[in-house]
């Protein structure tokens, strides 16, 4: 075994590994990226029914209601311009409130309602997800740049 042939072996193994990892990454990226949508995006862009996505905005005042004795909830997410109804089953994060920024993960059903399987919990009173800020800015609903970016 010479130094050269050892280097060959290492190189072959390394390249094989890299190639398979790249293949894995590319296929996984294709299937597992979750895009972020604001309510306006959802209305204007074509979204496949059942495709996993994230929807973010403000929980619209006066839209929150409990169904089926409290396990299922329904609320609307707005970016000021458009509004999307969201259905969710499960316990909401502690800081979930009307008027607060929120990100939900789920998919659209045939009726154009959003079925969330996850409502993301955040740490802080004044927390506003960066995605939501952008969505609000895009729709001209953003007020103030003060301390809201703290997470």
């Amino acid at each position: 075994m010479t130094r050269k042939s050892r280097r060959m072996y290492v190189l072959v193994v390394a390249i094989a590994l890299l190639a398979s990892a790249t293949a894995l990454v590319l296929t996984a990226l294709d299937d597992n990226i979750t895009y972020f949508y604001s309510p306006s995006d959802l209305k204007t862009k074509q979204v496949t029914v059942g495709r996993a996505l994230r929807l973010g905005g403000l929980v619209e005042d006066g839209t929150f209601e409990k169904l089926d004795g409290g396990l299922k909830v329904k609320f609307s997410i707005t970016d000021g311009a458009e509004t999307v109804a969201v259905n969710y089953e499960g316990i909401l994060p502690d800081l979930f409130r009307e008027g607060q920024g929120v990100i939900t993960e789920g998919s659209l059903n045939e009726k154009g309602e959003f079925i969330a399987h996850e409502v993301l919990a955040k740490h802080d009173e004044n927390y506003m997800p960066a995605e939501v800020i952008e969505a609000l800015k895009a729709s001209g609903e953003w007020r103030g740049d003060e301390e809201q970016i703290t997470e």
Partner: peptide, 18 residues
């Protein structure tokens, strides 16, 4: 390319097989 997030399924399909 817009805002995206990558969750557990990605890692299950890449990290785990390696």
């Amino acid at each position: 390319g817009g805002r995206v997030s990558i969750g557990p399924p990605f890692y299950n399909n890449t990290f785990v097989p390696v």
